[in-house]
Amino acid sequence: MEKIISTAIVLEIDNIDTDQIIPAKFLKSTNKEGFGEWLFYNWRYDENDNPKPDFPFLQFQRDSKILIAGNNFGCGSSREHAAWAIADYGIEVVISSQFADIFKGNALNNGILPITVSESCLKALLKYFEREKTCAIEIDIEAQSMKVDAKDIYINIRFDIDPLKKKFILTGMSEIEYLVQQKEEIINFEKTHVL
C-alpha cells in the first residue's frame, strides 16, 4: 500500500465523534467484521432503518478510498469499532485538520492513514471535492506526499508520519509483532521497575 489514487468522500462537519462513526448499539459484536454497513448509521438511516436521502455521504463514489472530514475527526470514545467500520467500508485514508489522539492510533493499527493538513488546505479540499466527485487525489506514503492536479486546483504537500508507524504501514508489520519481539528487554525492564 505505497500509493493510493482515489476519488474522495466529503463530510464537512467538525468534531465528528466516534459515536457518530459507529453508534453504541453496534458495539455488541465479539468480532471485528462487518462494521462497514453501520458506518455513520444514524446519519445514513432514520429510526425505521430507511436511508436518509439528504445525507451527503451516498452522493459520492462508492469506491472512494479517501474521506475528507471537518476539524477534530474521531473525538470521544476509544472504540476501535470506528476504525473497523471505516476500513470495512473501504476507506484507506482520512484527511482532516486535526485528529483525536486515540482515533489516530486506532486508525494506524487498522491500516488507515490519517493525514493532517492545515486549516486552509482542508477548507480548499472540502470545497473542491464537494463539487468534483470524480476527481482523484494521489497519495504516496513512501514520499509522504499528497497531490491534486486538476482543473482549478493544484495541491502538492508533504504530510508527517512517524518513521516507525510509516514502516509498519508500508511493510504490513503490526505493532504487536514488534512489541512481542522486544520481550527480553521488557522482562529486563521489569526487574528494576518499582511501581
Binding site: S78, E80, I102, L179, E190
Partner: peptide, 21 residues
Amino acid sequence: AFGIGTSQVEQVLASQCLLLS
C-alpha cells in the same frame, strides 16, 4: 492514565507495553 483501542488492549495483554508518542 489513558484510554486505548482494542489493538492496543491486545498489545498490552501480550507485552505489557505500548508504542506511544
